[in-house]
Design a protein around this nucleic acid. Sequence first.
DNA 1: CTGGGGAGGGGGCCC
DNA 2: TGGGCCCCCTCCCCA
Length: 553
Amino acid sequence: MANCVVFHTQIASIMEVLANAAVAEICKLVDDDYAVFRLEISQSQKENGALRRKLQLLELKVVRERAERTRREHVLASPTGSVNILDRYRRMARVEGHLTGGHRRFVKPAGHNTWRDDQPIAVDEGSGTSTQHVIMIESADAEAAGPGVKQERSEGEEDPRHSRDIQTGDPTIAPAPPRIRSSITEISGTPNAILKSETDTETLSVPHRLLHTGSDHRSDPVGLERLGWQNAPGSEYLPVFHQSKRTVNSQGDDDGDTLDTGGDSSCSYAIEMDPGNMTLGLETQTDLSRGDWNQYSSSVYSEGCLDKKGDDIVVDEMKVEGDTPLTWNADETHLGHSQGRDFLDYTENLETNQNVTTHSPPHAFRDCDPESTSMGPSDLHSRVLFDQVLNSNDMARAQAQGQGATSGNSKEKRFLCMFCNKGFSCPQKVEIHQRVHTGVKPFSCTQCHMRFAEAGSLKRHQRVHTGEKPFSCTQCHMCFSHSFSLKRHQRVHTGDKSYSCPQCEKSFTHQNQLKMHLKVHMGERPFACTHCRKRFSERSYLRIHQQKKHSTL
DNA sequence: CTGGGGAGGGGGCCC
DNA sequence: TGGGCCCCCTCCCCA
């Protein structure tokens, strides 16, 4: 019995020794790993600092340029009404093309499409016209709201095309964009503040790193993965930040023992956050997550491409044309009343919903043309009906092509658009895609003022000036500048009428033909003449009617 | 004269 | 980078 007790005691002592040895080994491994981890963190912090300084320089540069352009636009401001300025510019660009897009024109002389700055630019497709001053149309409201608001809104909605054209601003007028400068000063204008934040708040650098490297992957693609980008990009920005907020007050920044969060790099960064700088960090994060980082990334991208473009392709400062006005001021509440409800909803949606999957794209408002005021409520209904009929065909095609917002291999398309959650295989594609939402158009034509989000679109557009029509029909003399135009044309020869009406068995070669035909079945005449209230099913009919009947008015 | 249909021009967007 | 498709606009023809 005694031997048994002694034996158990010895076993217990041996196990204790072994356990202690194991613990010691584990501690040693942990210490080693921790040392390596700390080293990596310190290196990352240094990288953050360098990147942040680069960012600050870029931000300052861009903001100065924008402020200068804003000043010039402000000089030529002409309040004419509260019309969506971006939509107007879109139509201006469209009208510009239409003004020169002659039907059955085989060769267009170069320069025919030249935008003349001294000409009023027709905006309304009917009789309405506007001028270049439309760029400041909304400034009328801004002036009513106060100079500060005006400056800030102009900052977000400025039109580089006009700003580039309008070079005759009165230099005696003070530029005075107070809100812009103050905002930039708060965020990144003063290096001292940033340097302080570098030492006090490491979390502040995390959103910067996350977001900016997400767009400018070339600078640090490894950092993305290290920070968890690959797991849930897009939707993970805010959770990371909120998590940081939660852990701020629970752990000290100088106690290495508390750094036991393992691989959760977000938590490990959050440890060293200074609550005093929370506002600054929140502003920066919010600012970037709303799309401003696209602006930044696009500018970087554009600048990076400057030397890659040929003589005919110019990539200059970013062009913001989209429905989501961008701003460098993170405090959107200052913008809300002047930016328009669309933008507000947009940003609120981004703020509150981290999984933005059902967001209607901003270009959903694209169809709100000037004549929409004469369109009855049924227009929306007809649009839905069109979609029901037409989308079945489109969806089948999309499925055949493997398209879709969330289709495809999620592992391959792990870079998500922060606006619509669509997945892409690499950050560049996300960046290009997000121009759909941001309206950034870095590629401008040297012969007219058209701007494009993609280089290919610009190259294709330049055939308008050169008259090049490389796509010729083998069965007739027709030549086309678009490859798809040729393909569409060849349906005439093949008799292919893919678009069939479900109600009368009619079929069409154009999808748009079917679209118009459906209106016949529905008896919709959404386009009403403002003079005699006669209604038409197509805008062109209304226009012809107005030209013939009311041209003298 | 109205309006339905045919077809090209051209930009947006994605693969 | 090019190809492809979608979409809108426009003009023309014709019943």
